[in-house]
Design a protein around this nucleic acid. Sequence first.
DNA 1: TCAATAATGATAATCATTATCATTTTGGTA
DNA 2: TACCAAAATGATAATGATTATCATTATTGA
Lengths: 140, 140
Amino acid sequence: MDFIKEKLEQGEYRLTRQRQVILDVMQEAEGEHLTAEEVLLAARRQSPRLGIATVYRTLERLASLGILYKSRFDEGKHRYEMADASQHHHHHIQCVGCGRIFELAEGLLDGIENEVNQQGFAVINHRLTIYAMCPQCKSE
Amino acid sequence: MDFIKEKLEQGEYRLTRQRQVILDVMQEAEGEHLTAEEVLLAARRQSPRLGIATVYRTLERLASLGILYKSRFDEGKHRYEMADASQHHHHHIQCVGCGRIFELAEGLLDGIENEVNQQGFAVINHRLTIYAMCPQCKSE
DNA sequence: TCAATAATGATAATCATTATCATTTTGGTA
DNA sequence: TACCAAAATGATAATGATTATCATTATTGA
Ligand SMILES: [Mn+2]
Ligand SMILES: [Mn+2]
Ligand SMILES: [Zn+2]
Ligand SMILES: [Zn+2]
């Protein structure tokens, strides 16, 4: 939590009330992947005058600082979650039955990454989403 | 080429002039990944009155028949290419330098897929994009 | 305290895609 | 061959997420 404040202060980035509220929302949404609209809804309980533009600006900024992790599934919008300090990037399984999103451990793609580097590329990042039926949906 | 006509005819799907032109464009764009707008531009050389709505409808239809393969990179729009009959799905490397898109062999993810199935899921599909510097951009 | 700068929020603009609907084309049928 | 119903087309409006604009407000440091 405090590494966040550090990052914020390093980056000449003021921790305003609005930003604090948005951060709180994100931290309380453990395990969820929220859209900007969903963040707005939740944040307005603390800060009713909050505008959607500020939410977009803040989420974008926090993501570029590595504090949030931004993903997009097969919808027209982005989703955000707290970035665990340890994992550079991680991947998801989206259930095609119930739509729920599950986490996938990091490092699964190291082999592939190596192979691609061998071919002369320099891998910088990658994004993987697996579409599956989750155990529960499977058994129905 | 002819498996396309089969599929089209099976699916009570008329091969109109517009659709033929769009297919031609896609087949001539070997190795490219085109947006709807780009398809429209090219197709209008053969069929100047072609409308964008028809392009969207046709691309969508052909993709759902498995004739085209639809992807989205870190842009706000989709890109289409002919689906090679053999490969169910394939993956891409996008160069963060020049933006070019390279193909990645299929089957790389079979290991991961098995692992996820082991955990009780039933994997249906997956999407992977690797971001890297391509050999040329790397050497500059 | 004051001026410079940053942040906010309302709202307009953007842009890809989808929906609507009147018109045209097609394929079968009498 | 003439006609009808269904399918397809194209112009255009609508949608929805995101970004840009800009006047107002808040914060900072001298
Ligand atoms: Mn996640
Ligand atoms: Mn491809
Ligand atoms: Zn499920
Ligand atoms: Zn390159």
